[in-house]
Design a binder for these strands. Sequence first.
DNA 1: GTTCAGATGTTCCAATCTGTAATATTGAGG
DNA 2: CCTCAATATTACAGATTGGAACATCTGAAC
Lengths: 181, 181
Amino acid sequence: MPTPLPISAYVVLGLLRRHDGATPYELDQRIRQSIGYFWVFPRSQLYAEADRLVRRGLIAERQENDGRRRRTLSLTAEGHDELHRWLATPTGAVMEIHDEGLLRLFFQDPGDAGAATSMTRLAQEQIEAHEGRLAEYDELVASGRLRPGSPQRATLEVGLRLQRMMIGFWREVAAEPPHEL
Amino acid sequence: MPTPLPISAYVVLGLLRRHDGATPYELDQRIRQSIGYFWVFPRSQLYAEADRLVRRGLIAERQENDGRRRRTLSLTAEGHDELHRWLATPTGAVMEIHDEGLLRLFFQDPGDAGAATSMTRLAQEQIEAHEGRLAEYDELVASGRLRPGSPQRATLEVGLRLQRMMIGFWREVAAEPPHEL
DNA sequence: GTTCAGATGTTCCAATCTGTAATATTGAGG
DNA sequence: CCTCAATATTACAGATTGGAACATCTGAAC
């Protein structure tokens, strides 16, 4: 490989292994209800990523030349190999988080007028947001689409624990907002 | 405000409230051992963000015209107001996660030769990475720089719980790697 | 069978962001 | 005074972002 592929490339390769012949659009939908939970990824990026992978010969593309002009993608042998190589490669990468709610909490100054109110409201919003997420995950589990003991079920387990943890945290904040500077 | 400010703008404003007269470089250092844990933010972005905020009149800048040419930043009254407004504004934003380790786990196929080995190794790497993070956080707590009951201590608490949760998760994976498809 | 809303699907784009390298200064230690 | 590490800013090519624009298909209701 000349330059190493971005992670999003592996997301495409990984999904294609299971869903050969999918369109970028379809991949986007799958991402949004699985991987999207721990790897955000805007739709437009998928089309760009597909182009790049085609250029590198890791996937093959067939585009309808009328109608919806669907682009159906499939792994090449090289793509399959590259995916395997990646899956077997060590990574020192650490989880990265973006949480606007925590940021707002961080910057609160308990000395400000209304800070306690702001924090309580913030906590309530965040509880709702995380409960919403948790409900989605629970639904996914209940749907039975994930085999117990599968890697997909395992990653979802992280999602469940994470959401529960965050709900617990924000409940504590709501009950007793930070008061010290 | 014409267009809403990006979150990173509020990071700058929020830090400046506590550290008036800081340089972008100094802000970067502070970010890397506090907010950076839940809001990633490359250094170069800070300089660009400072420019933007100056243009909008939310911060004032004084640059030394010799030596290190330090740019010292401080909040204007408008900047202060904007920060306050933001802190008091509701947000529906949900936490976003980027975790390459989980991604690799997600894409494992227990049918592949060596999958169990890959997963065990992955789990071990991740345990180390998360333990490293946890150690940093513990150190921060031990340093006594964060008052108990402060918003900053509260957000760090999330970091602690998160890392412990992830360590627990990966230990389970190491002990019994997913085996089902 | 027509119509319409909503889902499917791709393309385009300006603005922004990213990572990294280049440049220069200062301070500490030998 | 020399050197190394830390401090500090600038520059910038390439990638990414989010959204809007565009077009097609499906199915339900009438």
